[in-house]
């Protein structure tokens, strides 16, 4: 037998329901904490959702946040946030900062004068300063973007639920949707709790998490459906355990390869997409956890009809293979 890297033993016989009250309890608490955080802390929305302007500055001179602030305070722009950006991909003499100006009171559209004023003020402290990106979003658009973001996540969950219902049973669809919402809420909760900037790309990441998580869940369900036909008299709970154990090696290997792809992006991908990649990385962990500990538990609670009523199994696509 040749040597192989094994992240999971060849055969496992873990009782994934032994700790079900603890794991479900943890999930419930995590969802609850997330909701509390949504309402108490809210999100550190980027301009996509809040309106306003961000100006990225770049210079060979180190950033002096205090001096920037003093220069901009006189302009009467309301809330101005200045943060220095650090990234391992930057050169030694590359100093980047992000200036964020909240949406100006009573202005629907963006004013170029404001941006020009900020740029001139900053050029006075540092003549070599450059502005690699300037982005402005009016409050009208940002309000709509929040709405669309919610809609997108709801539509995606619903679409997946319908597909699972069609391919499996409604009980599976319920389990999947609960697991998906769990993943999205907890990931968003982490963003809220740590006040990590939340913009449109994070919504894309959340949607991708939906895709990853459902991927994982479907693999377990697919095996469950197959095993239910094979072991007609085995209690549902045991069939579920067996299915999760049989697919465990795959679950871990896939999570492993996905993380191996994501972690280099997290380190070398630059600060522009760091939030996006962070959301996905979190999602892989949470999604893997939820397909093992959340989705099937919901199905067990609802219960499954056994016997002839079950939809015929996996060979629907067998003809592709002929």
């Amino acid at each position: 037998m040749a040597w192989r890297l094994r992240l999971a033993p060849e055969t496992t016989n873990i009782d994934f329901f032994r700790l079900q009250y603890i794991t479900l309890g943890i999930s419930a608490v995590a969802v609850l904490v997330s909701f509390v955080s949504f309402f108490v802390l809210g999100f550190n929305f980027g301009i996509d959702f809040k309106g306003g302007t961000t100006i990225r500055t770049e210079s060979t001179v180190p950033v002096d946040v205090g001096a920037y602030r003093d220069a901009l305070d006189g302009l009467g722009l309301g809330e101005v946030t200045i943060t220095e950006v650090f990234d391992p991909t930057f050169d030694a003499d590359q100093h980047v900062a992000q200036v964020r100006i909240s949406a100006q009171e009573g202005q629907e559209a963006v004013t170029p004068e404001t941006i020009a004023a900020v740029e001139t003020a900053l050029q006075q402290i540092d003549p070599g300063i450059a502005f690699p990106s300037v982005e402005s979003v009016g409050p009208k658009v940002s309000g709509e973007l929040i709405q669309t973001a919610f809609l997108a996540i709801a539509a995606a969950s619903l679409g997946i639920g319908l597909y699972i219902w069609m391919r499996f049973e409604w009980q599976y669809a319920m389990g999947t949707i609960v697991a998906l919402l769990h993943d999205v809420i907890v990931t968003a909760g982490i963003f809220s709790l740590f006040q990590i900037r939340f913009d449109l790309t994070i919504v894309a990441a959340l949607l991708t998490i939906l895709g990853y998580s459902v991927n994982d869940t479907v693999v377990v369900f697919d095996r469950l459906r197959e095993n239910l036909l094979k072991y007609k008299s085995m209690p549902l709970r045991d069939v579920m355990n067996l299915s999760v154990n049989e697919t465990l090696s795959r679950t871990i290997v896939t999570a492993g390869t996905t993380l191996l792809a994501l972690i280099p992006l997290l380190i070398f991908g630059g600060d522009v997409i760091r939030g996006f990649i962070l959301a996905m990385t979190l999602g892989v962990f949470i999604g893997t956890y939820s397909s093992v500990y959340v989705a099937k538990n919901i199905v067990l609670w609802i219960g499954l009809p056994r016997g002839d009523k079950a939809k015929s199994s996996s060979n629907k696509f067998a003809d592709i293979d002929a």
């Binding site: 997946i160 597909y163 949607l207 459902v214 697919d222």
Partner: peptide, 21 residues
């Protein structure tokens, strides 16, 4: 032949997400 059903399901759901995005 046994893996294909899981592969198709997993990819169709991802496709749904991509379409919505």
């Amino acid at each position: 032949s046994k893996a294909i059903s899981a592969i198709v399901d997993a990819n169709v759901t991802t496709f749904i997400i991509a379409a919505i995005m």
